[in-house]
Simulated scan of single mutants.
Amino acid sequence: MIQSVIAKNLIASYLCANYQIGAGPDSISLRIDQYSEALAKFLISSEQSCAAIISADNPYSLRLSNEKNWDAHESLRNFLICHSYPIIESLNLDPADSWPAEKSFFVPGLDLNTAQTLGQQYDQNAIVWIGNDAIPRLILLR
C-alpha cells in the first residue's frame, strides 16, 4: 500500500465527514464507503455511471480566509461550467465541528482520472469519487 503524506488525523476527518449534495428537502447526505439509495436513484435518473465531489476550499487543508476560499470556489465553478460539466452545489460537513463547512461541487459524469487531475489542480488532498455502485470513496491525491 502506498503511503500518503497526508496526516492520519486529516484522513480520519475526511472519512467521518458528511458530504451533502444540494440543499433543502431534496438534498442527499453521503458518507464515505456507505451505499446511498438516494444517490443510486439520482445516478440512474440522470443516466450517469459515476460522479465526483470536488472542493477548491482550503488547499492542502490549510485554512484560508473566506474571501480566498470564495475566489477558489468561483474559479472551480467557472472551470466546470466552461467545460460543460453539470454541477450541483454541495457542502462538506465536519460532524465534530473542528472544520467549518466547505463548499464543493457534485459533478455527475466526471470520470476518476479527470476528477483526480482537477483535485490536484486545486491543490486538494483528496476528492470523493462515486462509481456506478453508488458508494462514495475517498481518493487521496498526495
Rank of each mutant, 00 (worst) to 15 (best):
E47R: 10
C82Y: 07
C50W: 02
K41Y: 05
Y14N: 03
I127M: 04
Y85K: 12
L93E: 06
W99R: 04
Y122C: 08
A96I: 10
I81Y: 02
N69V: 10
D26Q: 11
H73V: 01
L80Q: 09
P108Y: 03
Q124D: 02
I32R: 03
H73L: 00
D123T: 13
G131Q: 04
A40P: 01
E47A: 10
N113L: 11
A56D: 05
L91F: 06
K41W: 05
P136E: 02
G22P: 03
Y85F: 15
P59Q: 04
K103L: 12
R31M: 08
K41L: 11
S27L: 02
I11T: 01
N92M: 12
A126N: 09
D123F: 15
R31A: 12
S75Y: 15
I11R: 01
E89G: 10
S65P: 11
D94S: 13
S104E: 03
N69I: 10
Q48H: 06
R137K: 12
R31D: 09
I44L: 15
S29G: 01
Q48G: 00
H73A: 05
A126E: 08
F106R: 00
W99E: 07
W99A: 05
I2Y: 11
I53G: 03
Y14V: 02
D133K: 05
N92S: 13
P136A: 04
S90G: 10
E102P: 09
N58W: 14
A134M: 04
P108K: 02
L118Y: 07
S104W: 00
S98K: 11
I44C: 11
L141A: 04
